[in-house]
């Protein structure tokens, strides 16, 4: 199953990656071969297999609703490239345009 050029560009856009033309072609091949490999699974007979949502044989791992101390803000912000007023500072995000 060969991914189209548009599909690769769409995936790149969703991942916020800028790809050159040459890279788009390369990933078109690489991603397609990954899909081909996974495609093997469809050959298995799963008639008697129960649906599975998780690989571990556990369920209902929960905690009680207790509050513990949060992290000190200085520590939290110490790895951030940029901060201001106790916040992470990021490039301006435009709100969804209202006009």
């Amino acid at each position: 199953m060969k991914l189209s050029r548009q599909e690769v560009e769409h995936i790149a856009e969703l991942a916020k990656l800028g790809l050159t033309d040459e890279e788009v072609e390369r990933y078109q091949d690489q991603l397609s071969s990954i899909l081909d490999y996974v495609e093997m699974l469809t050959k298995l007979d799963t008639k008697d297999a129960r649906p599975m949502a998780h690989v571990l044989p556990v369920s209902n791992v929960m905690r009680d609703d207790h509050v513990h101390a949060s992290f000190p803000r200085d520590e939290i912000l110490s790895n951030a490239p940029d901060t201001a007023d106790g916040c992470f500072r990021v490039p301006l995000v435009l709100e969804e345009s209202n006009s």
Binding site: F71, I76, D85
Partner: peptide, 18 residues
């Protein structure tokens, strides 16, 4: 996580953890 969910009026980023 066990951070307080009561964030109203809290100083920014004081109810956070990894």
């Amino acid at each position: 996580c066990s951070c307080s969910a009561d964030y109203a009026g809290a100083e920014p980023n004081t109810r956070v953890c990894p």
